Amino acid sequence: MPASTTAATPGPRRVAILVYDGVTLLDVAGPAEVFKTANRFGADYQIVLLSPAGENVTSNLGFGITVEHDVSAEPAADTYLVPGSDNYPRTPVPSTLAEAAAIPATGARRVASICTGAFILAAAGLLGGKRATTHWNVARELAARCPTCEVEPDAIYVRDGNTYTSAGVTAGIDLALALVEEDHGPDLTRDVARALVVYMQRA
Rank of each mutant, 00 (worst) to 15 (best):
residue 66 T to S: 13
residue 37 T to M: 09
residue 198 V to M: 02
residue 55 E to L: 05
residue 64 G to K: 14
residue 68 E to F: 13
residue 197 V to D: 08
residue 87 N to E: 09
residue 155 A to S: 11
residue 113 S to Y: 12
residue 67 V to N: 04
residue 195 A to W: 11
residue 106 T to N: 03
residue 152 E to T: 01
residue 107 G to H: 08
residue 44 D to Q: 14
residue 30 G to D: 02
residue 165 T to G: 03
residue 190 R to F: 06
residue 198 V to E: 02
residue 74 E to T: 11
residue 99 E to L: 11
residue 195 A to H: 14
residue 101 A to P: 01
residue 75 P to C: 15
residue 10 P to M: 13
residue 39 N to L: 13
residue 50 L to M: 08
residue 176 A to D: 04
residue 183 D to W: 05
residue 22 G to M: 05
residue 152 E to P: 01
residue 141 E to G: 00
residue 114 I to F: 05
residue 92 P to G: 08
residue 65 I to W: 07
residue 2 P to I: 11
residue 135 H to F: 15
residue 97 L to S: 05
residue 193 A to L: 08
residue 36 K to G: 10
residue 133 T to D: 02
residue 71 V to M: 09
residue 104 P to G: 03
residue 21 D to L: 10
residue 107 G to Q: 09
residue 106 T to A: 15
residue 82 V to N: 05
residue 155 A to H: 11
residue 63 F to T: 06
residue 102 A to Q: 06
residue 201 Q to K: 15
residue 56 N to A: 12
residue 106 T to Y: 06
residue 34 V to H: 04
residue 58 T to F: 10
residue 131 R to A: 15
residue 41 F to H: 12
residue 194 R to Y: 09
residue 82 V to K: 05
residue 13 R to F: 12
residue 181 E to F: 12
residue 45 Y to L: 02
residue 184 H to S: 09
residue 12 P to G: 13
residue 172 G to T: 03
residue 193 A to H: 11
residue 24 T to A: 15
residue 109 R to V: 14
residue 89 P to E: 12
residue 112 A to D: 04
residue 45 Y to W: 10
residue 105 A to W: 03
residue 116 T to M: 02
residue 57 V to C: 11
residue 178 A to W: 00
residue 14 R to C: 10
residue 103 I to Q: 13
residue 35 F to K: 01
residue 69 H to L: 03
residue 66 T to E: 08
residue 47 I to W: 02
residue 50 L to Q: 01
residue 199 Y to C: 01
residue 178 A to M: 03
residue 162 N to T: 15
residue 81 L to D: 01
residue 159 R to P: 00
residue 175 L to Y: 12
residue 188 L to D: 00
residue 124 A to N: 01
residue 92 P to W: 13
residue 136 W to P: 00
residue 46 Q to M: 06
residue 80 Y to H: 06
residue 197 V to S: 08
residue 85 S to G: 09
residue 181 E to A: 15
residue 33 E to S: 13
residue 140 R to M: 09
residue 113 S to Q: 08
residue 40 R to M: 13
residue 125 G to T: 14
residue 51 S to V: 04
residue 183 D to Y: 03
residue 140 R to D: 15
residue 107 G to E: 08
residue 139 A to F: 13
residue 74 E to K: 06
residue 114 I to N: 00
residue 110 R to F: 11
residue 196 L to M: 15
residue 198 V to R: 06
residue 40 R to Q: 11
residue 80 Y to C: 01
residue 181 E to T: 12
residue 115 C to W: 05
residue 172 G to I: 02
residue 151 V to G: 01
residue 131 R to E: 14
residue 76 A to H: 08
residue 178 A to P: 03
residue 181 E to K: 13
residue 80 Y to A: 07
residue 127 L to K: 06
residue 66 T to L: 01
residue 41 F to S: 07
residue 80 Y to W: 10
residue 32 A to C: 08
residue 100 A to W: 07
residue 3 A to T: 10
residue 30 G to R: 04
residue 123 A to Q: 02
residue 69 H to G: 07
residue 160 D to M: 07
residue 32 A to D: 00
residue 26 L to I: 12
